[in-house]
Design a protein around this nucleic acid. Structure first.
Lengths: 192, 192
DNA sequence: TCGGCTTGGTTCACTGATTGAACCACATGG
DNA sequence: CCATGTGGTTCAATCAGTGAACCAAGCCGA
């Protein structure tokens, strides 16, 4: 990004210095969807490995992601922090704009409020509860405009197969267990 | 942006192909603030002229801006279309994230709901009216965290001097008249 | 113990985008 | 007729993104 947007007295410019680079917002979107592993980001986005490394480093150093090597093995998880989770309204708003203006075939993804099951509005409001649910309380599922022929990686396939709660691991090691505790806790802190 | 984000079955990726390039979102923000002229974008943002030309061309061709040469003279106005105005929730959400996480000195800009005067929440809600006002119903003013020493162009100065209704011309030719009709109408269509 | 495989990277040449300064055409205004 | 303002274009230099190849560490079965 070169010199960045220095000497702009504007929080939007500062925010864009953090998340305005190419690919960054798509990496974060995948984090909300439950993607946590380098190889999954790479396969799902088609992002060059060097760029992915750079973006994950930047997001980690800016405090939006936490890099967590697993206790055993060589794998690494990248998890959204509270600061990262707080970008959900932005990600959602931009995606909804794309759905409205750039998607002729109907919505690709639909989001519903987990506690009540109602679909949220384009502004993120749950019409039943009259609240704006935090990301952790949303469930994503395929919409009628989704095109299953475009991508064929395990992330796309997992998202296609069944509705999925945001921020929960898309590939848990023990699928029987409801979910790991750490991330839910972090996400809920944001909600309060 | 190179090849763009093709073969992504995702409205966010499509949206980023339109507004994800460097400077684009800052140009749009200025449009919301009432900036309409090439020279004002250039002076306010410090964006290279060639890049500004390119961004205005792209935004115009994608239908977010309308390029309107004035009846007399050589000046040109760039005005947000309905499609452009509809990006307000995105711009606002990202700016609020920046205010929350990257701005230690307090809010730089504050937004209030014009009809009732109440400040809107970080999610864009007017607590008095219990609605999410459209951009055209918001008034922007300086917050305590604004740093007046950073920029010294006529846009910064106009925004500093007094509260300003979004989407209205920051430099009207006849300051007595309330405002031009075209943009208000377009903005209000979005609100309904 | 020894390859092979997986994972999460790094390196590097190539390409494409951004930058900033200089130049330019047109339309007023004096 | 010249100076000035506006909205650009051009171009060399630099910077960022791309994609293929390479690599180290940890496990895995033989």
């Amino acid at each position: 990004m070169g010199r960045g947007y220095t000497d702009q007295d504007c929080s939007l410019a500062r925010a864009l210095e953090v998340v305005g680079e190419r690919w960054t917002l798509l990496v974060l979107r995948d984090c909300f969807y439950g993607v946590r592993r380098f190889a999954d980001f790479h396969a799902h986005l088609g992002i060059p490995r060097a760029v992915l490394t750079d973006r994950l480093k930047t997001l980690t150093s800016m405090g939006l992601l936490e890099r967590r090597p697993r206790a055993t093995g060589v794998e690494v998880d990248y998890l959204l922090t509270e600061r990262g989770v707080d970008l959900w309204p932005t990600v959602y708003a931009l995606a909804q704009w794309g759905e409205r203006w750039l998607t002729p075939d109907g919505a690709r993804r639909l989001f519903s409020h987990a506690p009540c099951g109602t679909d949220v509005t384009p502004l993120g409001l749950c019409p039943t509860c009259d609240t704006v649910p935090p990301a952790a309380d949303l469930v994503i599922r395929q919409g009628p405009g989704a095109d299953p022929t475009l991508r064929d990686d395990r992330v796309s396939e997992a998202l296609r197969r069944k509705p999925h709660r945001l921020l929960t691991d898309l590939f848990p090691e023990h699928p029987e267990h409801p979910e790991p505790a750490a991330v839910r806790a972090g996400a809920h802190r944001t909600a309060t």
